[in-house]
Amino acid sequence: MQEFNQHNAQFWQNYAKVLEFNSNYQNAYHAYQKALSLHSHATYKFDLAYLLMRMGTEDNFEEGKKFYESRLFYAHNETFSAYHYNKTMQIFNKNGIDAFKNKEILIFCEQGFGDTIMYSRCLEKICQIAQKVLFAPQSAMYEMFKNQIKFLNQSEKNFRNLKVLKTLPKKFDYAMPICSLPFFMDIKLTEISQLKTPIKAYKKPQNKIKKIGIFWFTPNAIDSETTRNFELNFLLDALLRLFLFKCKVIIHYQINIENRAKKIKNWNDTLNNLNDIDCMITIDNAIAHLSLALEIPTIVLLNQDLIGVVKI
């Protein structure tokens, strides 16, 4: 098939994905490069970026950061202003990270809730460089980030020059998407784990009877390419069987289920309802990112034909 598709970019893209899903990352990389040599398509660059940033080496990560900017090709309506992004890119290409010293920088969010939580740890790096950081999260996350920054600033100095905004400002020097911070802030792979997330649990739970949080369904996953949702009864039955297997004895059990969704209006409510959870079992979505940021032991369920469970 390779012989007869030497000039077919879509074939090489599909072949790269097959190799990637079979953990043949190096040959997947070469297949993506072949596809891009035939057609410099934003989708090919985006998929290659995901592969490179997951491969776990500094060189791959650096190359992946650059390709990851191709995602903005599909985000015209969410990118706030192509003019401001291009202005930021031009000054960065000219002066590098020094271009943002002593400047007011607007950080906006152009992707999902999970991406905002995941990349929010990169805010610490720009707070070290810029004079003032204006952070405009999604409106549903405004209260959570505002309260968290206020809480952290009581004892730490990492985010003292960061202001959480409810609406986009009119005055600033440069603007950049939060998911572009690793690129514009020149964040290295080894730095990521050292950066502090602005999301922190108020206190660790002291439950005598452990509380397990379960998040199993989101409407956004119904029509997605990857089915994320699980049936609640399936999960409860699986957990019960696992518990009985571990105990290896016949016991009397009682499951108390509390539906906390009725209490939740925004992400600040979600965070508060996770603070007393000992372990979180969740599908692959923003809840997983939030529970991990709160340092809650988290099990992420992958529902791709029920191929497996990944413990993080």
Rank of each mutant, 00 (worst) to 15 (best):
Y142N: 06
F151E: 10
I149M: 03
I178H: 11
T197G: 07
F145C: 04
P198T: 01
N207I: 09
M144L: 15
Y174L: 02
W216F: 15
D186E: 15
N207S: 12
R160C: 01
E231Y: 05
I212M: 12
N233I: 14
Q206V: 15
F145W: 04
F151K: 14
C127R: 02
V164Y: 05
I214M: 03
N153L: 00
P205S: 07
I187D: 05
K170I: 02
L152C: 08
F145V: 03
A140P: 00
S224Y: 09
F184G: 05
K208E: 13
L195G: 06
T227Y: 15
K208T: 14
F215Y: 10
S193H: 03
Q131T: 00
S155K: 15
A140L: 08
K208F: 09
F159L: 00
M185P: 01
N229T: 07
I149H: 04
P169V: 01
M144R: 03
D186S: 15
F135T: 03
S193T: 08
P177T: 09
I187P: 06
K208I: 12
P198S: 07
L189H: 10
R228A: 04
T197L: 04
E143C: 06
T190G: 00
Q206H: 13
A136C: 01
V133H: 02
P169N: 09
I178T: 07
K150R: 02
L195K: 01
I129A: 14
S193K: 13
E156P: 01
K157F: 10
Y202Q: 12
A201C: 10
N161K: 04
K200Q: 12
M185S: 10
I199P: 14
I149K: 13
M185V: 01
L195H: 04
E191P: 03
F172M: 06
M176Q: 04
Q128A: 12
Q194A: 13
N229P: 10
I192W: 13
F151H: 14
